[in-house]
């Protein structure tokens, strides 16, 4: 880890360092992978999703959570395959519905930490409705959206976050639809913690995920990634390393962004990394608990039938 990166992220030199020789024996992160699962993963070599998986494990571990008390709920797509490799309660659901399944699970087990893992197509297109309503309720779920601007698993079709003019197999002449700003959408819909970073900045992701999971209500972490296999190839963006370099060069920390002049901000095209939004608001399952208490306090006895 270069001195420069550590200083940018305000990190100690020893943080996040995993000695290569101890990788399999003593890595705490790897202890949270399922040893009975046939590796390697389904992801292409060079994919950014594995970086996010590492960050998620380190974030959970840093909070000292019991694995039994953590559930990962995923939809469909490359990103949604993440939970199967990880040693928690894992629920791989249907396309777009991770947050709806997670809502039921959270209501049944408000004591558990629930993390919904989705890609951009999963969360923003087919699952867009569930996304805004989970945020509106401020239900205690962390939404982790890995945004690679494309449908990877089906072979590179345009997604709701594909930038304008970029090509996809279903946008062969360039994308004409403006992309969804995921973090803005979450903030506007009612999320109480919203942060973004990229897979070039895993230590930031570690930190933001830990904060998101600690937040009582609905949290969103957007992990900006890339798909060199589909999006990169059709748009001639080079290798995984080339695309990783773009994440480094074409992103700006929130603190640096805040120092820009109004004019500079208006014309900023770089991805802003940081905690973008927080708000104090009661969490849904706790509010429901209060409602139950109120019903009991008012001494309305449970009855077989409301015969009045």
């Amino acid at each position: 880890m270069s001195e420069h990166i550590l200083s940018v992220h305000d990190l100690d030199v020893n943080e996040g360092q995993i000695p290569r020789e101890d990788w399999f024996e003593s890595s705490d992160t790897l202890q949270h992978l399922r040893k009975n699962k046939r590796f390697p993963t389904i992801w292409c070599s060079g994919c950014g999703i594995g970086v996010v998986m590492g960050s998620l494990i380190r974030a959970i571990e840093s909070l000292g959570l019991e694995n039994n008390n953590v559930a990962l709920v995923a939809g469909i797509g490359c990103t949604a395959r993440m939970p199967v490799y990880m040693d928690y309660n894992t629920l791989h659901t249907t396309h777009g519905r991770a947050l709806a399944f997670a809502t039921g699970l959270k209501i049944a087990r408000p004591d558990m930490k629930i993390i919904a893992i989705m890609g951009d197509g999963d969360a923003m297109a087919i699952g867009g409705n569930h996304f805004i309503h989970a945020a509106r309720r401020n239900i205690g779920i962390t939404a982790l959206v890995v945004n690679n601007s494309i449908y990877g698993m089906t072979g590179g079709q345009q997604s709701p976050t594909t930038p304008l003019d970029m090509r996809a197999t279903t946008a062969p002449y360039g994308n004409i639809e403006p992309p969804f700003p995921i973090c803005d959408l979450a903030s506007a819909a009612g999320a109480t913690y919203v942060a973004r970073s990229t897979v070039y900045h895993p230590l930031e992701l570690d930190k933001y995920l830990a904060q998101a999971i600690s937040n009582d209500g609905f949290s969103l972490v957007e992990a900006v990634s890339y798909c060199h296999t589909t999006y990169g190839r059709i748009n001639k963006l080079g290798s995984a390393a080339d695309m990783m370099r773009v994440l480094k060069e074409n992103s700006i920390s929130k603190s640096a962004y805040d120092k820009l002049s109004d004019e500079e901000r208006e014309f900023n095209t770089k991805t802003v990394r940081g905690v973008l939004h927080t708000k104090k608001r009661p969490e849904y399952t706790k509010v429901y608990g209060t409602l139950v208490d109120r019903v009991h306090e008012e001494a309305i006895k449970p009855r077989n039938y409301g015969g009045h």
Binding site: R97, G104, L105, I107, A108
Partner: peptide
């Protein structure tokens, strides 16, 4: 819930959670 798709998903989630 916000629609019937979500309703069906939520009850599966609730059942997985033990209710």
């Amino acid at each position: 819930m916000e629609d019937e798709i979500a309703s069906m998903a939520a009850i599966i989630g609730g059942s997985v959670g033990g209710l």
